[in-house]
Computed example of a mutant assay.
Amino acid sequence: MPSTPVIAGEQRPALLRTARDVADDLAADAIVRDQAGEPPTDEAARLREAGVLAALTPPGPGRGTDWRTGCTVIRRIAAADSSVGDVLARHYVHAWSGRFYAGRHDAAALEEQSVREQWLWTGAVRVPVPDEDTEGPDLTLRPRDAGHVLNGIRFVEASVAVADQFVVDAVCGATGDVLVVRVPRGVRGMTTEPARDRLGQRVVGAGRVVFDRVAVTPAQVLGRRPQDEESTAPFTALAEPALRLALCHVALGIVEGALSEARDLSRGGRAYRLPGADPDLFLTYGELASAAQTATAVVDRATEVMAQALDTGTRLDAEEPAGVAALVATAETVASKAALHVTARVLELADAPGLDRFWRNARVLTAQHPAAHRLRSIGEHYLNGSHRAVAAAFH
C-alpha cells in the first residue's frame, strides 16, 4: 500500500529525508535502467510508494508542497536519475493546472482527489506565440450534448505510458477557443506510442498520445487558454515559466550528480589523473564547482521570485509575470550552459561505465530550447519591457 503523503508545510524535513532515500534507491541501479531505456513504470511505483507523488501537489490545508520545497525535491532526485527528476518536475507543475487555468477555489477538489489517488500528472500545453503561422491545431474539440469530443495527436515529453492524468490544450471547432482539458489514463479512444532509442533521458517515457474521439466531460475542462499573451491572466501566464523553471532544477541535478560521481571516481583512484598535489586537477574541479554554484545561485533566485508570485495568486499584478518569465529564461540559459559544460568536462576527468549518461541527458534536456533565441528575448525585455519578447522566449 502507498505510504501516507508527507506534507511539506508541516513536515518539510521529513519530505526531504524521503527524497534523499528515494534518490539513494534510484542511484543504486541508475546505470542499468538507463541502458534498458524502458518506460518509467517501476520508477513511478517507487515515487508513489514513497508518497512523493501525493506530496508534490500544490499546497493546501493539510496537503501539498510549497514551490521552494518542491523544487528542492526535484533537484535531489534528478541528481540520482535525471529522467525520474524530469518525470517528477512535469508531474508537479501539471498538478498546478487547475489553479493556472481555473483558479484556486475551483481546483481544490481536484487537488484533494489527486492526493488521495496519488495521481501521476503529465501533459503538453502549448504557449501562444505572437504572429505565429501554423498549419492548424493538432488537437481539436468538437462540442456534443454532454461535453466535447477530442481528436488529434500530441507529443508529450514524459510518462506517456504511466501517467494517470494528461493535461493538453485543444481548439474548439465551434468557438475557436483554446481549452485546457484533463484526460484520465485509459479512457476509450486514447492510445500512447512511447518514443524509443533516445540519446538521453531514456527512462523519462516520452512519446505520442493519440486521441480518437475521446469523450471530454465538462468537469474535465480546466479552463480557457487565451490565444495571445496580452489577454492572458497574470497567474495563467506563470504556467509555462513554472515548467521551465522546474526543469532548470533537473539540469542542476544533472550537474550535481555528474560532479559528485566524478569526484568519487577521482578519490577512488579510477580517474585519468589522481588527486594529491595536481594543481591542474584542482583548477579543473574549482572551475566546475564554481560553474555549478553560479548556476545554482541564478536558479535559486528565479525560484524565490516564482514562489512569491505563486503565493500572490490571482492578486498578481499584470506586469509581474513578464519579469518572472525573463528571470526564468535567464536561469534556464545559465543552467543549460552549466549542464552541458560540466557533463562534458567530467568525461575528461574519469573513466567509468555510465558516466556518459550525464552528458547525454543534459544534451536531450537542453536541446529543445536554443540559448540564442532566449537571449534575444531576454535582451528585448530588458531594453523595452516587451511582453512579446517574454512569450517568444518560451516558444
Rank of each mutant, 00 (worst) to 15 (best):
R376L: 14
R315G: 12
D311C: 01
E319Q: 14
G103H: 04
L88R: 15
E348G: 05
W67S: 04
A271Y: 10
L16T: 03
A371K: 11
V129W: 04
V346S: 11
A107Y: 10
S386H: 11
R244T: 02
T303A: 11
D300L: 11
T312F: 05
Q165M: 15
R46C: 01
H373Q: 06
T4V: 11
P61G: 09
H369W: 01
D177F: 10
G136C: 13
D264W: 07
A14Y: 06
A174F: 06
V204E: 12
M306N: 04
E132F: 12
V52W: 05
A326F: 07
V204C: 07
V22M: 02
L316M: 08
D177T: 05
F166S: 03
D351V: 06
D21I: 00
A339R: 11
V73I: 07
A326P: 02
D317Q: 02
R99F: 08
H249N: 08
P13D: 10
D145I: 02
V334D: 01
G136W: 11
A14H: 13
V162P: 13
L281G: 14
L383S: 12
K337D: 10
A14G: 07
Q220L: 03
Q227T: 14
T18Q: 15
M306Y: 08
R33D: 08
E230C: 01
A36D: 05
S231F: 02
R374A: 03
L199F: 04
H387K: 15
Q227E: 12
R144K: 12
S159Q: 09
P130F: 00
C71D: 09
N151E: 11
V324N: 09
A392E: 15
E111R: 15
V299C: 11
V6H: 13
P234T: 00
G257K: 09
A30R: 13
L245D: 04
T122S: 14
A291F: 01
R99I: 03
D138A: 11
A239C: 01
E332C: 04
D106F: 02
G62V: 14
E380N: 10
D34E: 14
A239H: 07
L120N: 10
D300M: 09
S82I: 01
D138P: 08
G173I: 06
R154K: 15
L283Y: 14
R345N: 00
F394C: 06
W119D: 08
S336K: 13
R68C: 02
A107M: 05
V203T: 14
A242L: 03
R188W: 07
E304S: 13
A19L: 03
A239V: 00
P2Y: 01
S97F: 14
A109G: 05
F235P: 02
M1A: 06
A50I: 05
A258P: 10
Y101K: 05
E49D: 15
R33A: 08
D212R: 15
L349N: 13
D24V: 02
D81C: 07
H341C: 00
G205C: 08
D264P: 07
T330S: 14
K337M: 02
L283Q: 15
E320R: 11
A44I: 14
D317R: 09
V209E: 08
S3L: 13
S336L: 07
R17G: 00
P321A: 01
V203L: 09
R142V: 12
V250G: 13
T69N: 12
S290M: 03
Y285F: 15
E193R: 15
P218I: 00
R144S: 03
G286E: 10
